[in-house]
Design a protein around this nucleic acid. Sequence first.
DNA 1: AAAACGGGGGT
DNA 2: ACCCCAGTTTT
Length: 388
Amino acid sequence: MPRRSAAPVVSASASIDVPPDFGARVVHWQRQHGRHGLPWQNTRDPYRIWLSEIMLQQTQVAAVIEYYQRFLSRLPTVADLAAASSDDVMALWAGLGYYSRARNLHRCAKLVVEQHGGRFPTDPAVLVTLPGIGRSTAAAIAAFSAGVRSAILDGNVKRVFARCFGVHGYPGEKAVENRMWAMAEAALPTAGPTQADDMVAYTQGLMDLGATVCTRGKPGCIDDAGRCPLADICVARRDGLTAVLPVPKPRAAVPERSTVMLMLRHGGEVLLGLRPDSGVWGGLWSLPEIDAPGLPFDPQEAEHAALDHARRFGTPSRAAMVAELTHVFTHFRLLIRAIRVDMAALAVHESAAHTDGWRWLGLHELDALGMPAPVRRLLESQRGGLFG
DNA sequence: AAAACGGGGGT
DNA sequence: ACCCCAGTTTT
């Protein structure tokens, strides 16, 4: 029986509200409905369990099984692995991907032989010091191989906790992850005569729940609450939030750009230009624009710049800012400000405007043209002022 | 095309 | 101590 390692910091978990039977629910569920009979579940050999945990970090159970068995048939002990050549280890790993993990595996085996006399550790505090073994993997190895009471927190478990305890906030964020570790400690089965066995079922149960019931896309409780042993205490289920918890990684704030569009108006027509095929709105008809890279932005200045710009096409009489809207692209937001410019007269070189791809168009001609949605909206909203 | 994944590595 | 990445699968 493994020595009980240092007790978790109680104060950290005191504020975490975990039902006292949480662990028992998971243990009971896993014994009845969890996954059983997988090759690494029939052993307490920490070497074999470690190997399975590393392989399972990156590959599905179905794919791991044959690699796992082949690996162990060639290298049945940690001493064998430590003594193997890099080439042999990599060959056994070939096809699993994430080859740095295989290199860590080999390094780790050598360290276990050198530093621990070839006896694979089962103390999570020792395990975490080894390459390729982080806090969660260390706990899993300790729990499965020796029934040590230590908390795991992998992606599946984060999802279960986020939903069951209603954790808002991205689990990849430090503060949120810390809270979840505190939950993981608080949720552990309590001491008792069967604690070591319970820890095995509990740890496996959390993983199984996340993998088979509390899945990302469509959790099993949606169709049948009876599938989840936590359904009646699950905050996300109660509040209808299973689809939004855990909250996804916050998308980086999209940059905001701005532009000024001119609605040049003359004789019931508006000036539109055909945009180049490449780039934003390629091949669509759009309004003339003034670059407005700098915010903040003075409307009077803008109107002045609009009049200036309009002289290219004729003689403007007045300009007025008439609309403002934000268009959202996938990679940025575009703030569009629209200025209506009344033209007193058009440039004499009308043909030049034509070859440039500019055309004066009446209301009835617009429908047939391909236009960016915000431009169409702009024209629609100003229909009276432009064509009336 | 984007999110997720557990640990390592860099700042 | 924090942030970000590698390398691959899943959605």
